[in-house]
């Protein structure tokens, strides 16, 4: 009965994600409709005759009613057809497929760093609330949030990658080992701005859990050491940070766009920067869709994780 509660909750969340995704698709589709200029003119060139323009409109389906165009768009997306880049040389789908692994690895490594940094500093800070260590970590956290990611990236390149030679000066790898090594510094640059937010939330959760009656009750029953920390502190303190981490994904994504340019990583973020410079609308549209779908998925996973950590949220 309780299990069905949890799985029922997951099922309901999945169902709720469907209309959200449709709205997203509609918005991304509408993006192209509000772009100034006639798409047919862009294809045919400014000096094309009216007849040619009309023929191209028919070819592009622009003579159809808008809702039919949307259905057509849905069909194309479903088959992975995002159109071609402005130069016509590459399919946008191919571009996404080649960039996605880079961005995914970057985000994954960065999430691991974020969790490790936030976890370790939160535990340290919570040892003595308002003590010296707590205050020092607090100051460092404020600095971490404030420091611009691109600047930190340059500092890491010049201050770590260059002198030590342990990390590539930008660029990506082609074996798992070189890929991981290439991901370390950019992921670190990315984590520094996100980890403090997570740390603050985790720290106050830990302090609160340690002051709680259930913590005292567990101690009275003889629970102590790591079992006490894991079962009666971290488990409770992790709930707000997990949903926060999901919400911070947007921050991580926009950070990835910056970091990929700074480090020259061939990921989706770099493609987006370049597409924005070239006014390549198909690419922008495709990437916007991928990014927003990623946010939807991550929030879904976050909700489910929170539900497994804290059964009270299942309503």
């Amino acid at each position: 009965m309780i299990h069905s509660g949890r799985f029922g909750f997951v099922g309901r969340r999945l169902l709720q994600a469907i209309p959200l995704t449709l709205v997203l698709l509609l918005l991304v589709f509408a993006m192209l409709k509000v772009v100034p200029g006639d798409p047919a003119m862009q294809v045919a060139g400014p000096r094309a005759s009216a007849a040619t323009l009309q023929a191209i409109r028919v070819q592009l389906g622009l003579d159809q009613p808008v809702w039919e165009q949307f259905l057509h768009y849905l069909g194309r997306i479903a088959t992975g057809d995002f159109g071609t880049t402005a130069t016509g040389s590459t399919k946008v789908g191919t571009l996404i497929a080649s960039g996605a692994p880079v961005t995914l690895v970057l985000l994954a490594v960065s999430t691991v760093f974020t969790v490790l940094i936030a976890g370790a500093t939160a535990l340290l800070a919570a040892r003595r609330p308002d003590g010296l260590v707590d205050r020092m970590i607090n100051v460092m956290a404020a600095f971490g949030v404030g420091v611009p990611t691109f600047w930190l990236g340059i500092v890491l390149l010049a201050g770590v990658a260059l002198p030590t030679g342990a990390f590539p000066i930008g660029g990506w790898g082609d074996t798992p080992a070189t890929v991981l090594r290439a991901a370390v510094l950019p992921a670190l640059a990315l984590s520094v701005s996100v980890a403090p937010v997570l740390m603050a939330s985790l720290r106050s959760g830990i302090v609160e859990a340690r002051r709680s009656e259930y913590h005292a009750a567990a101690q009275a029953a003889g629970v102590r050491g790591w079992k006490l920390t894991r079962g009666f502190v971290l488990r409770n303190a992790a709930v707000p940070p997990v949903s926060l981490l999901a919400a911070l994904t947007t921050l991580l994504l926009s950070g990835a766009v910056v970091v990929e340019s700074t480090f020259g990583l061939p990921g989706l973020g770099l493609s987006l920067t370049q597409a924005a410079q070239n006014r390549d609308f198909n690419v922008i549209q495709g990437l916007t869709l991928v990014f927003s779908l990623a946010v939807v998925v991550v929030n879904l996973v976050g909700d489910v994780l929170v539900a497994f950590l804290d059964p009270r949220v299942m309503v």
């Binding site: 709680s212 567990a218 009275a220 009270r312």
Partner: peptide
Amino acid sequence: MVFQEPMTALNPT
């Protein structure tokens, strides 16, 4: 030891 508030003295997770 038995605490006063069973709501807060039992770990909700």
